[in-house]
Design a binder for these strands. Structure first.
Lengths: 249, 249
DNA sequence: TTTTTCGTTCTGGTAAGACCAGTAGGATGA
DNA sequence: TCATCCTACTGGTCTTACCAGAACGAAAAA
């Protein structure tokens, strides 16, 4: 194994694996500076461009920060590269958009549960602000979409979970466009305005009530109704979707 | 903006942005080969090492495949790099492990719902095989952990969602170790054997019954009970956790 | 004509050396 | 003691060069 690591593996692999080990075994901790590129290259017996490839790799993974003329520093992991990934991945497989949407629902449903347990006053305030803006911007597709987005983001932030937040952000940025086009359905369905306002309000209320089960059910129905609107828009059916369980709220 | 892209941005940024654009606007499609490194370097006015840094970056993001002496090919996006990311990220912030676990629960709960709608016979068979193995390996921490892992993975696979599958895999690989240590609690709690066997069976039954709501509730309770076992192990309390809603199944 | 073989050409992988431009920190001078 | 300057060091980048294997077409053999 060691022999293979040292011999058969490519230079890049060796350097990357070396740094990975150092990061995993705690030799390199957050905030610390790595060896200089030249030093690293000499120590591992590779050329500097190879070392730079490995450092770039760690950089796009959000593990290190490369500061010009200063050095390479281990930073607090940042998953913003997920955004790049999802964006590029979706460009290749556009059909994944519904799939990603489902993953987003997964994240939000878990988030709303945690939010019920952990939300602070500040979180409630953020949610309420978003709620008010949704009402104010109901006739504006762009601003309305942004307000909608903010509300859902506020839910995830209220969950106080960095992982959920990062996953959600990387996906919702990507879904923003489709979200916006959905907002344009407001013109088609008169009932959609009240859906947008009242339904978000219902979700908000369940969080304030700190009722995880009801919060998730309400949020899930919120997504389902939105889907139904979209379906009707595609098939050209009339107004008022109201999934069969609308009496529950 | 263009001027800035061309002037102020570093060479790496330029190349990366250029390739990103090409991927987003569909100029580069899956399976296609990129320009040769030399050609790319000449066209963008940078040196080959810089181009290689950008290509490596796309490679670690799982967007392209670099085939030695053949070329760089746009491949089907592969999120396996998430595994690297989560692994390295967790090494820096070990306290994130509970946070990641919550995200995993989010994924599985959504997956089990979708599985109820979409699971095929093959999925049922895979689930059942895992179930049987859980019973067979109940006294073996290693094999038992693997069986447990397989069962949960089977749920996600049954959801037929690539995104959920990829997210789940990247997290569960990482959680495998903590999962395993949890399995060693089997020795401490006599009731845990039946928990492991019966509880998984209950989840399986709800999927077969294609009842999303009950499936999610059951799975959520499954996680809660596991957590409770772990809590008791830490605090040194006795046997039989049985969260207050155990009669529901 | 078909098949095999060979070799040129192109590709990525890597090394080595060099220059630039800021940074950091010690040495120097006020 | 403090402000200033200088120098070593760092990352950013380019250039040149060589290797080895893959691809592909031409030439030779069947």
């Amino acid at each position: 194994m060691d022999a293979q690591d040292a011999d058969s593996a490519s230079g890049f692999e060796r350097v990357f694996a070396y740094l990975q080990e150092r990061l995993l075994d705690g030799t390199l901790k957050q905030g610390e500076r790595l060896m200089a590129e030249r030093e690293l290259a000499a120590q591992l017996g590779v050329s500097r461009p190879i070392v730079r490839e490995a450092l770039r790799a760690l950089h796009v993974l959000g593990i290190v920060e490369i500061r010009e003329r200063v050095g390479t520093i281990v930073k607090r992991p940042d998953a913003s590269m997920l955004k790049d990934f999802f964006t590029l991945a979706l460009a290749q497989q556009a059909d994944l958009i519904d799939d990603v949407m489902e993953a987003r629902i997964a994240i939000e449903c878990q988030a709303v549960r945690l939010a019920c347990e952990r939300a602070t006053i500040a979180d409630f305030e953020r949610l309420q602000r978003a709620l008010i803006r949704i009402g104010e911007t109901i006739d504006d597709a762009d601003a309305g979409g942004a307000a909608d987005f903010d509300f859902h983001r506020a839910i995830v932030l209220a969950s106080r979970s960095p992982t959920l937040a990062v996953l959600h952000e990387s996906m919702s940025t990507l879904l923003a466009r489709s979200h916006r086009s959905r907002r344009e359905l407001v013109q088609q369905f008169s009932s959609m305005k009240s859906y947008l306002i009242d339904d978000h309000k219902r979700v908000f209320d369940t969080i304030v009530a700190r009722d995880p089960d009801r919060a998730e059910v309400t949020l899930r129905r919120h997504f389902a109704i939105g889907d139904e609107y979209r379906r009707r828009a595609v098939t050209g059916e009339g107004d008022r979707p109201e999934t069969r369980s609308a009496q529950g709220a």
